[in-house]
Amino acid sequence: MSGPVLEVADLSVRYRTPVGPAYAVDGIGFNLMPRERMGLVGESGSGKSTTVLALMRMIRPPGEISAGHVRLEGRDVLALSEEDLRRTRFARMSLVPQGAMSSLNPVLPIGAQFADLFAAHDIDPDDGHVAGLLSRVGLPPAVAARFPHELSGGMKQRVCIALAIALTPAVILADEPTSALDVVVQKQVLATLGRVQQDIGAAIILIGHDMALMAHFVDRIGVMYAGRLVETGPVKTVFRSPTHPYTKLLIGALPSLTARRAFQGIPGVPPSLTERPPGCPFQTRCPIAEARCRIEAPAPRPVGSDHLVACHLVGPA
C-alpha cells in the first residue's frame, strides 16, 4: 500500500483573546492511511472540532493556524491558494457536519444544494446522479425536491453524508455526525456512513465523545486532552490496555453491563487554554503525576506497535 492519504504534523490552532492566545489545538500529529477509519475522542473543549476545521482550513478570525503541516495526498493544504483550496474542499476532503439539523440552507430545496456543489467544482452530473447518491444513503429520490424543514433529523444527516461522498473524496471528516440524533437513528446513520465510506474507498476521521459508538466503528483511535493528542493506537489495544493515565480514567468511567457499581468521573477540570502552565496538561488531575510532569511537557512516544502515548511515566523508558 502507498503512503498515508493525510499527514498532520505539529498542528496548532490559537485564538486571540483579550487575555492572550488560547491554544485550542496544541501541536498534534497523526497519519491517516487510505481507507482507514480513525476516531478522535475527548471531552468538550479538547480541540476535536477545531482540529477538523483546521484540516479544512476553515478557522475564522480571531482564530488562526499558528504552526504545523497538513498534507493531503502529498499536497500541502496550508499552502494552497484560495482558489485551489476551494476546489480541494469536498472534492478531496469532505465534511459531515455536527449540526445536521441546521447545516442545510433552509430556503433551497435539497436538489439545489447538490447542484451548487457540482457547479462549484465544474461537474455536470448525469440526470440520475443525485437520485443515485440519495439512494446510497437510503433516501428516496423524491427527497431532492424537498426543503430541509420537510425532512427529519436523520434524513438531513443522510443528505449531508450524500453530499460528502458526492465528489468521491479521499478523506471524509465526520464531526460528531450523530450527536444531534436519537440513539436508534445514531446507529443507522453511522452504519450508512461506514458503508458509503467503504464504497468510495475514502478514509475517515470520526469525531465523537461516545466511546462505545466509537469502539464499534473505527480502526484506530486518538484521545485528545486540552488540545493535545495524548494517546493514539489501534482501537482494540487502546480499549484493552489504555496506557495514558487520562485514557485509563476515561475508559474506567464507562458504565459496565456486567458489574454493578457507582459511576466514576475524573475529578477536576481541564486547564485553561490561555494560561498553559509548563509541563503535562493533565498534571493537575493525574493520579500519578510527579515533579517532572510539572516542568517538562511529554512528547508522544511509541509504547507498542502503532501505539503512541504522551506521558513520561508509562511505557518503555
Binding site: 476546489r87 441546521s102 451548487d116
Partner: peptide
C-alpha cells in the same frame, strides 16, 4: 453564524454563491 454557511464554505462554493 449559521451551520449552513459553514457547510457551504466546506463544500467549496464560490464566495459569490
Amino acid at each position: 453564524g449559521e451551520d449552513y454557511i459553514m457547510l457551504a464554505e466546506a463544500k467549496g462554493l464560490t464566495q459569490r454563491r
